[in-house]
């Protein structure tokens, strides 16, 4: 592998541009975090890589848009995957198109539908934020990709899925405080696509929210 160049340092690792079998790829390298105890670091890094790889494959199998997985090396702590180079973070997309409300609401709808599909397949993402959702603009409707599955797991529990949505809701309202209607559109699409089974997740979300708000916050 040559022509390796750093694109960004994410929350867990460094993301590089590279060539792999003639293709433009992304290498996600979870480097050693020396701030934490080496045993803990080793354990967490391996767990995260395994979780990410498993969920990428699982999503791929059921037709959820994720980067294609090309290679994984647990010893080097590296994942090689498709480079979605014409896609941008949903976070950027929303900031850049603040003025165009209908476009922002449009991707809210698409995200809601993708999350319904994710949860229908019992995959919990674990870190849903607008940094971990990529948008590929297209002449018709924009295409939503999910990335960053290091905290993901398989679960059929309503509670786990509701917490997954709660994490997203909090991230969206902190990151995009003026994106009125975005979450509403997103939930509506989730409900529509998810049917009866996922409606209970939205009901549970209400409960999780109330629990969050009620929590005492002592100084």
């Amino acid at each position: 592998m040559n022509d390796v160049s750093l694109i960004t340092q994410g929350a867990e690792g460094r993301v590089f541009n590279a060539k792999f079998l003639g293709k433009n790829v992304i290498i996600k390298h979870r480097f050693k975090k020396t701030y934490r105890h080496p045993d803990l670091d080793d354990y967490l890094t391996k767990e995260r890589i395994k979780a990410e790889v498993k969920s990428l494959v699982r999503c791929r199998m059921v037709g959820i848009n994720v980067p294609a997985l090309y290679d994984v090396n647990l010893h080097a702590s590296e994942i090689v995957m498709e480079n979605l180079d014409d896609a941008i973070q949903a976070r950027k997309f929303i900031y850049e198109r603040k003025a165009d409300r209908s476009e922002v609401l449009g991707i809210g709808k698409e995200i809601g539908a993708v999350l319904a599909k994710l949860h229908s397949n019992d995959i919990v993402h674990g870190d849903l934020t607008t940094s971990n959702i990529l948008i590929r603009p297209s002449s018709e409707k924009p295409i939503v990709y999910l990335i960053d599955f290091g905290l993901s797991y398989v679960s059929d529990k309503i509670e786990d899925k509701a917490v997954d949505l709660y994490v997203l809701e909090r991230a969206v309202s902190s990151t995009h405080p003026d994106s009125d209607g975005f979450l509403e559109v997103l939930w509506e699409a989730y409900r529509e696509k998810g049917g009866k089974k996922l409606n209970s997740v939205l009901l549970k979300l209400d409960e999780v929210r109330t629990r969050g708000r009620k929590k005492l916050c002592f100084g």
Partner: peptide, 19 residues
């Protein structure tokens, strides 16, 4: 300490990357 501080540093780093 090693465990709970690692959790705090990790989530702080996640917020930094996000913001």
């Amino acid at each position: 300490q090693e465990t709970i501080f690692a959790m705090l540093v990790e989530t702080t780093e996640r917020a930094m990357a996000h913001c």
